[in-house]
Amino acid sequence: MGRWKTVILDTLVMTAGFGTLTFMSVAKPDIIGHFNITSDQYDLQHVAYVFGLFVAFLLGHTRIYEGSFKRSVGIAVSWAAIPQILIPFVGNWNIVVFLRFIQGFVVGLVPLFSTQIARYFIAERPFAKGIILSGIFWGGVFGNIAARYLLGYVDWKTGFVITGLVIYLVYLLWFLLVEDFEIKHPKSGDARINVWKLPFTWALGFTFFPALWVIFTIIGFTTKLGYDIGWTKDHVSTLSTTLNLSKALWSIAFGYLGFVLSKKNTTPRGLFNAIVKVMIIAYAFGFAGLLLYSKAMLSGNYELALFSVVLVGALQGTGPAFWTSAPATYPENVVPRANFALGLISNSANAIAPSITEALARTNEELALIELSMMPLIGILALIIASRMKLPVETT
């Protein structure tokens, strides 16, 4: 099957996997009523889900994703699908929270697809990855619309079951059409390098940390500030939808920029230099957006806020470049393990960013906005440091 058709199918799997998870927020009133819980108790499921996104990368260092690539993707989508189907039949809210934690493991699709596209592309990797990553945000947009439509015809329990089955239907289509291969993790005696012992791994992993800090904080933070300002539910929803659309489109656009820059020099150092340039440009756009966002939220200027989130979404442009860095910089035999290691380091932001930002906002909203605005500058500094280090592939 054609390489780009595979990219489109990967994107559909991402869209289905992450889009299905939006059903929880759309069905919020029904769920609160069914389980007889408070809004604060309801929010625990989101905290658990975000923490699951972090823990998911630990699984990449086990044998669970070793062997058949198709089987590994099936396991990854099952983390989302099976809990989705089970939630309506669970009577205890604490179990639902745990199932939401498990659903966060679906992010394992990201490093798995990174390993896949490394086999098919070189200079085109950022563009292919940008398209695939956009599926996360298409899922947020279309999943929200589809969930609202579905709830007009069925009760929330049936909706959960249907959306869980949709993931498997899309996976089945993907399974029948894509090529399989074997994922090999080097055995302890075979690996030429231990990715965790390399300072480069930690430096590179941290280059994406500031972007994820903002990406996983900004929507919830915007919702809180928006309602505090007095904006309506439609206003807040429009901001969220605009931000998701922005992230999807920036992901593709910066992925294409990565391709344009990468094809000029396809040596490991040339590819990595292109990755660094793309991420710095994305951080620069994001920094400008966050400055405007801060001004808009402090002044209550909705039009400016709407424009600012379009620029803030450019932070997602760092993603396609980052997720193609392992194949460019590590020896081929450790790329799968490096993908999960880099994901674990960068996604540690998921576990702490929302709570730290919320704590700062309770003290002073300006302080929280300054913290968010500084993240792109930290990201640029991290990229400069990483760009001056020797690549693992250059030392073996």
Rank of each mutant, 00 (worst) to 15 (best):
S72Q: 02
Y42R: 03
S39H: 06
T6E: 14
R63F: 12
L53D: 01
T62L: 07
V50F: 00
V77R: 02
L53G: 05
I8K: 09
R71N: 13
F57E: 09
F69W: 04
W79F: 14
H34F: 13
I75K: 05
L44A: 12
D43Q: 14
L44P: 01
K28Q: 15
P29G: 08
S68Q: 08
R63C: 02
L21Q: 11
F23Y: 15
T22V: 15
T20D: 11
Y42A: 02
G60M: 10
A48I: 04
W79T: 14
K70W: 06
V77T: 09
I82V: 15
H46Y: 15
V73L: 09
Y65G: 12
Q41E: 12
V73M: 09
E66F: 08
F18R: 01
A80I: 06
F23G: 01
K28L: 08
S78C: 04
L9T: 09
S78L: 11
Y65H: 10
H46M: 13
I37H: 13
F23K: 01
I82Q: 08
W4S: 10
T22L: 15
I31T: 07
L53M: 15
L53Q: 08
L44H: 08
A76Q: 04
V13P: 04
A80D: 06
S39Q: 15
V55G: 00
T15F: 07
F35A: 11
V77F: 09
R71I: 15
A48N: 04
A27H: 06
D40C: 01
T62A: 11
G52C: 02
T15M: 08
W79H: 12
V47F: 12
S72K: 12
L58I: 09
V47H: 03
R71K: 15
S25K: 02
V47T: 15
I82L: 14
A76L: 13
T22N: 14
F57M: 11
A76K: 06
T62V: 08
A80L: 07
G19M: 03
D30R: 05
H34Q: 12
Y49V: 00
A16R: 01
I32S: 07
G19H: 03
D43P: 00
F57R: 06
V55L: 13
G33N: 08
L59K: 03
E66S: 11
G60V: 05
V73T: 05
V50L: 05
T15C: 07
H34I: 00
F57H: 14
L44G: 01
T11W: 11
